[in-house]
Write a protein that binds this DNA or RNA. Structure first.
Lengths: 340, 340
DNA sequence: GTGATGCGTGGAACCGGTTCCACGCATCGA
DNA sequence: TCGATGCGTGGAACCGGTTCCACGCATCAC
């Protein structure tokens, strides 16, 4: 390289070395529409010789684009790391973001807390848009983001419904119904559920579907305990459930991690799965195959949701929201194993 | 707010509304050195009324600062999520970065792969500096970053040693020595080790210390198997070790996760811990307390290292590297529990 | 009363790109 | 031969801030 140490070459230098104007150099660097082959070659050569990389800030300032998007996860980091849901999510998002040639900025925030700080960051236009995963009831995030006019896609429906953000979600109600139906069909008559946190849609919807199906079948819907999507919480919830409803013969847990906890608790109390109590989980992210017995569960379409979310966001950034913002629903797929 | 929807107010508008020049408005917005109380008040008021937030790109362009730093983790995402090391690291880094009023950009890359893409990003000056955690032998990262002139702090020593990056590390050799000494002192005479990956300093150093201490004590140093820092890998390594050296009465595992695997394998073979085989781990990030028996281990000073790394980096960004870049070593602390 | 000092201020240059627009030139159909 | 067309090009404005510097004015010591 020609340039001296430490100095970052500018487009001006490239242009001069290539013997063209800054304008032409800029065009050549960006794909080269309306640039003659000779000019293109000269610029390419100069870029190589100088080791030129466009300055991000300057480019952002002119184009009003940063080329990066934020992933907001309003969740404590303990949960983020404990729950395979997020690992899987991050994995897919990372890959998908690369495919669109974007940079991912991970924005971890405690739910509800530090919203000021986050919004200040977003107002500074550090990112072109955001994906929000794991929304909680109290959060005013959806409205704040919409007010900001920032392209936004939620994975999982936000509580404060607004028609100014796009949403990608899975059919939790349908899964809840299917789970209940499956337990009913195998002969269970006293069916309980370990629901997710009441302040999250994922918890709410699966519970709602379970309720609907049982009600229509004329069965009781009182055996409900809310867990926190962790294994320990699942075990505890299962204990509470069994104390109150000793005759339970079927349980739907809103996540595999909680189901795994339930299995432990059931084993500790000498109840066999599925002979004494049939168990259905939700997620199918590895955990379900490793429990004993392996869990009958629903495959959470995280991959599809995350991919679609990034696609929608990229499209929105490029072409506008496409009136009105979209809402896309994926159906979780039942995976039968031994637990029910 | 006065402004119309969707339009972002600029400093120019603030200045006009406050009846001062752009220059004065800028000074007032940034802490207000050399600004009269009246001007300050007028600007503050205008900022509030317009809802002004400085445009990040423009500010970056002028100041040559972005206010964000990158955390590079050259590791597959499975490991990142499986190993509590990273969870803890990310937790501390996040908090520490906030304290310095910086924004964290998480840069996950496969070790060795995609270096082109990463370096292109970094050359674009999206971040003011980087912290690198978990460096592998093959990576040319240290040299590339140094060549770039980007403020860089490694957590854990890089292989390609260069004096142009700062390093924060823990004393792995010392820990290895202490572990060996402890096993010798409790009477072990056939001591093996499940080392970390040979391509990582964390693996190499702890092994080296173990070797030194045993050699000086006149004991054999042949019982070495390399694991991959995972639980499954630890169990497998332990199996190999026991097959080759059935008389083993002490093992030093370079991570608690691998030690946990070793406990499982030992149990499966009917060997009691610590009666038949004494076991020392490394990390003490929760895993060690939950094994049966609880592990004697070393507290990996991740919190201290991460905090110090961010502090060094922030200082470097503000005041230059402070000839020459620093190297800081923390001593892991022995935590005695039941396994040895 | 005078010159030195210092503070608050605004004009203007600057950071490093992108893009509008006008212009010159070659090509083409009539 | 002439005017219309279109392509490649460069000058210059622009994105939205920060900061250098010169200037006016009040204060102060002598």
């Amino acid at each position: 390289m020609v340039r001296s140490e430490g100095e970052t070459p500018t487009l001006d230098q490239v242009a001069r070395l290539a013997g063209v104007s800054k304008a032409t150099a800029s065009r050549a660097v960006n794909g080269g529409a309306r640039v003659s082959p000779q000019a293109q070659a000269a610029v390419d050569d100069a870029v190589r010789r100088l080791g030129f990389i466009p300055n991000a800030a300057a480019r952002s300032l002119a184009t009003r684009r940063t080329g990066s998007i934020g992933l907001i996860v309003p969740e404590s980091d303990e949960r983020i790391f404990a729950d395979p849901f997020f690992a899987r999510m991050l994995h897919v998002v990372t890959r998908s973001v690369k495919a669109h040639d974007l940079q991912l900025v991970l924005l971890l925030t405690q739910p509800g807390k530090e919203e000021q700080r986050l919004m200040r960051y977003l107002r500074g236009r550090f990112v072109d848009g955001v994906v929000v995963a794991s929304h909680h009831r109290g959060d005013r995030l959806a409205k704040s983001l919409a007010d900001l006019g920032l392209p936004t896609v939620f994975i999982g429906s936000p509580w404060t419904s607004t028609d100014r953000v796009s949403i990608v979600e899975s059919d939790g109600v349908g899964a809840g119904r299917q789970a209940a139906r499956l337990l009913i069909d195998r002969g269970c008559r006293a069916i309980g559920t370990i629901a997710g946190p009441a302040d999250m849609h994922a918890g709410h919807d699966r519970l709602e579907g379970w309720r609907q199906e049982l009600s229509e079948a004329g069965l009781g819907v009182d055996a409900v305990v809310h867990g926190d999507f962790t294994e320990v919480g699942g075990a505890r919830a299962c204990g509470v459930l069994l104390d109150e409803f000793p005759g339970l013969d079927g349980i739907f847990a809103a996540s595999d991690l909680m189901a795994a906890g339930a299995i432990r608790e059931l084993a500790a109390r000498g109840r066999r799965v599925p002979e004494d109590v049939a168990l259905v989980g939700y997620d199918d992210l590895g955990t379900a195959e490793r429990t004993d017995p392996p869990l009958t569960t629903f495959r959470n379409p995280i991959g599809a949701m995350a991919t679609e979310a990034i696609r929608l966001l990229a499209q929105w950034i490029d072409e506008g929201p496409g009136e009105p913002p979209r809402r896309i629903v994926f159906a979780p797929e039942l995976v039968r194993r031994a637990s029910a």
